[in-house]
Write a protein that binds this DNA or RNA. Structure first.
Lengths: 327, 327
DNA sequence: CTGAAAGCGCTTACAG
DNA sequence: CTGAAAGCGCTTACAG
């Protein structure tokens, strides 16, 4: 059988509480005792039962990652694995484990997250998506459970880590304006998503700042599950407006556009958004630095968890700078 | 405060053990009592403390997903999110949660997995990679801990779920042979990986079966972190061998090849392997059906966990069929 | 069909 | 600097 804290205590000739204190590296314990106990732990290959620890101490050293529905386009995008990398890098340093939670629909996801929260399986949550009035977020708010959104939240009292997508849209558009283009089209992903709206706002702001009139015929939003397919079809119409450059919010969208343009033998300057260097022949991309987003997200959640232990309620809002890279 | 099992028992006028039995839907309990207790649970919004449950019952309803090093090319590939989808779909049906585990190097990963296993945080493990003599797999074997490898294992006594990569390599090559090509090149990812070796074996088998001599100058393996970059460079040399078609084992590799070929204005038929429809203009791809792999992986692990409760030791080896799709 | 008791493996005051 | 006791919230035999 696995060794318990009692076995270690016996072998080291101390009480179980002393063993606990050694594990916690309590300054109250003498160096000599610590050495003894540690030797005993080694000898018995002792590892604490984390369930027992969590039961009594009511912290788990686990955080939950809340993903959107299983069917979501989310999984097509390198954003998720990249942000996950950032989160897990910092989590490993703090010795935190990561539990992920998704489901086929909202009901199943709500059930899963309830179990995590009520069942005391995690100390905090990171939402890897952002949508208005999400019931899962509501649950966290109601129970005063530590959480943070990786994205833009509608409520002003929610902690979040995000890019400044309005500014990024502005800069992406300005990139082309500065190169002398005047008929810049804009093609975004799902219109409902806050990121699409924000980047569109940035696009409009940039045109305005340079006194270029907005032509809504040059603005398109994709729909459906496969972004490329939708973008491909949209381009057919878009091209009639004779744009001289295209700002797009997603590499998948850019892929659809490029595919159509290639087929009809047209070449247009394109800028896109991505979390990794696009494998596509486009001119530039806005790097949202998903690894950094993930790293800061974990750090911030960690902060929030500690705050809540002290009954502090702080709302953190962190912006991760983007960069524009020419290809 | 959150309601405990005692609160429910009191409200329902029964003992805590009866509440437990109702939760377990034990046939020993009368319908009337069940109704009472369930009503009380509803009223108090009762959710069991899972740490307490795991402590005493020593099962967790959590499985661990073991990922390769944080720096690994693994994260560039859609295989991971796709397989994860499959795993989490079935996990949700069984009401299992998923914990993921990675780290910056093997030491950190071993530490993380030790905590999961010794700390009794998970009931079983799925390894999402496969390499010879992996110390993490050793740990699981030594402790008789339920696990399974999503990939090919070197030991014959390890459960696994995988494609038949030799057969797939054979078919991919035959696809071109049947179209009349005779000078088929082969470009694979990292030579150390078992999948690369297996697909190469399939390539050789196909040539042999059609009496086409193997020309090792037409066989290349990439190296380094960015597969496309490596493939790009390799193509420069490869092209001197005047291949008339190329079998490649990875879409990233295919991307590098296509990029080079496009630049020099050459078009060659290419077939690749992928878990999602490639966004690249190639002729066909072998779909490894990563979702299915994930689904079967969870189901099998679930089986293994149940076997181990009954002290059964069964070694499962499941093959997931691939398909070739023309684009 | 149901309850009382013991215990899972820890940690946390309390006491010295 | 250290120990004895109590308890976290469940479940599992045992008994009836």
């Amino acid at each position: 059988m696995r060794a318990t804290i009692k076995d270690v205590a016996k072998l080291a000739g101390v009480s179980p509480s002393t063993v606990t204190r050694v594990i916690q590296n309590s300054p109250a314990i003498s160096q000599k005792t610590k050495d003894h106990v540690r030797k005993a732990m080694q000898e018995l290959n002792y590892h604490p039962n984390l369930n027992a620890r969590s039961l009594v101490s009511s912290y788990t050293q686990v955080i939950g990652l809340v993903l959107p529905d299983d069917s979501d386009i989310f999984y097509q995008n390198p954003f998720f694995p990249t942000a996950l990398r950032g989160i897990s890098q910092v989590a490993a340093d703090y010795n935190y484990a990561i539990q992920i939670s998704t489901g086929k629909d909202e009901e199943q996801r709500l059930e899963a997250i309830s179990q995590m929260v009520y069942g005391k399986r995690v100390d905090g949550l990171i939402f890897l998506y952002s949508k208005p009035d999400d019931p899962l977020v509501q649950l966290a708010i109601q129970h005063n459970f530590p959480f943070l959104i990786l994205g833009k939240a509608s409520s002003p009292f929610v902690s979040l880590v995000d890019n400044d997508n309005i500014q990024a849209g502005f800069e992406a558009t300005t990139y082309f304006i500065n190169k002398g283009f005047q008929n810049i089209a804009f093609v975004a992903g799902n219109k409902e998503l806050v990121v699409s709206q924000d980047r569109y706002q940035g696009y409009k702001n940039a045109l305005k700042a340079h006194n270029i009139p907005l032509d809504e015929n040059k603005v398109k939003f994709t729909s459906g599950f496969l972004l490329e397919d939708s973008a491909y079809k949209i381009t057919r119409k878009l091209i009639k407006q004779k744009p001289d450059a295209i700002v797009t919010t997603d590499t998948s969208v850019a892929e659809g556009i490029v595919q159509y343009l290639t087929e009809i033998g047209v070449k247009l300057p394109i800028i896109s958004f991505d979390s990794v260097k696009p494998k596509l022949a486009i001119d530039a991309y806005v790097d949202v630095h998903a690894i950094k987003l993930g790293r800061v997200a974990f750090n911030t959640l960690h902060q929030i968890i500690n705050d809540s232990k002290e009954n502090k309620q702080v709302c953190y809002r962190r912006v991760i700078p983007h960069t524009i890279t020419e290809l």
